[in-house]
Simulated assay, not measured.
Amino acid sequence: MSARRAFLAQGSAVLLAGCAATGLRQDITPRPPRDALASFVLEGRAVIRQGSRADSVHLSWEHSEGRDTISFANMLGMQLAELQRDAQGARWLSADGERVEAYSADALIARLTHDPVPIDALALWVTGRAAPGAALQLDAQGRMLGAQEAGWTVRILAYENEQANALPAQLEIERGALRIRLAIESWQF
């Protein structure tokens, strides 16, 4: 191997190691502006803490205007339940065959968290946005770092990279004794 090729190989390895160490992704494909995101699919992990209890789940969330499907699996990948929401209401379908219906997904999420989690607001928060009127904290690029909205505290712990249009990679939402930490592993649009 020539000295030039060895230098390039070492430089590439150092650069890739730096990206991995920071957890920032540099390979973001072009996407719509954050404010134009009306639908998405995300894969990630969540830790749900309430008092002294903590549960970890893998989640897959398909979101579009007025429609959501959130699948919950254990950390080994075994399906635990699925939450569906559409114009007809919301359904909780567990792996053991339990089916519960309600008028709102927020009420059904309370089955997991013992407190209603606002799905419409959560869809904004995971994309680094908040509802009009929320108290926001922004970074130098104008991205949301934190928000106070309807009694919830939202903190963006990390973005996927340093680009202005980057999406959150880690966030935490909290109200009272309930704290949910999300690590988003992948996005599709």
Rank of each mutant, 00 (worst) to 15 (best):
Ala3Tyr: 15
Arg4Glu: 15
Phe7Thr: 10
Gln10Ala: 14
Ser12Gly: 14
Ser12Val: 06
Ser12Asp: 08
Ala13Lys: 12
Leu15Ala: 08
Leu16Ile: 02
Gly18Leu: 15
Gly18Phe: 03
Gly23Ile: 10
Thr29Phe: 11
Pro30Ser: 13
Pro30Glu: 14
Pro30Asn: 04
Pro33Arg: 14
Ala38Val: 01
Ser39Ile: 01
Arg45Ile: 00
Arg45Leu: 02
Val47Leu: 14
Arg49Asn: 04
Gln50Cys: 05
Gln50Lys: 11
Gln50Ile: 01
Asp55Ile: 00
His63Pro: 00
Ser64Tyr: 10
Ser64Val: 04
Arg67Val: 02
Asp68Leu: 12
Thr69Val: 04
Ile70Ser: 13
Ser71Ile: 08
Phe72Met: 13
Met78Gly: 12
Met78Ser: 13
Gln79Leu: 13
Gln79Lys: 13
Glu82Arg: 14
Ala87Gln: 02
Ala87Ile: 00
Gln88Tyr: 03
Arg91Ser: 09
Ala95Asn: 05
Ala102Ile: 05
Ser104His: 05
Leu108Met: 10
Leu108Asn: 07
Ile109Asn: 03
Ile109Thr: 00
Ala110Trp: 10
Arg111Cys: 14
Leu112Ile: 09
Asp115Met: 10
Pro116Ala: 01
Val117Leu: 12
Ala123Phe: 03
Leu124Arg: 04
Trp125Phe: 06
Val126Asn: 15
Thr127His: 13
Ala134Gln: 04
Leu138Asp: 09
Asp139Arg: 02
Arg143Gly: 10
Met144Ala: 08
Gln148Ala: 13
Thr153Lys: 09
Val154Arg: 06
Tyr159Phe: 15
Leu167Ser: 08
Pro168Asn: 07
Gln170Gly: 06
Gln170Arg: 12
Gln170Asp: 15
Glu172Cys: 12
Ile173Ala: 09
Arg175Phe: 06
Arg179Thr: 01
Leu182Pro: 03
Glu185Asp: 07
Trp187Ser: 05
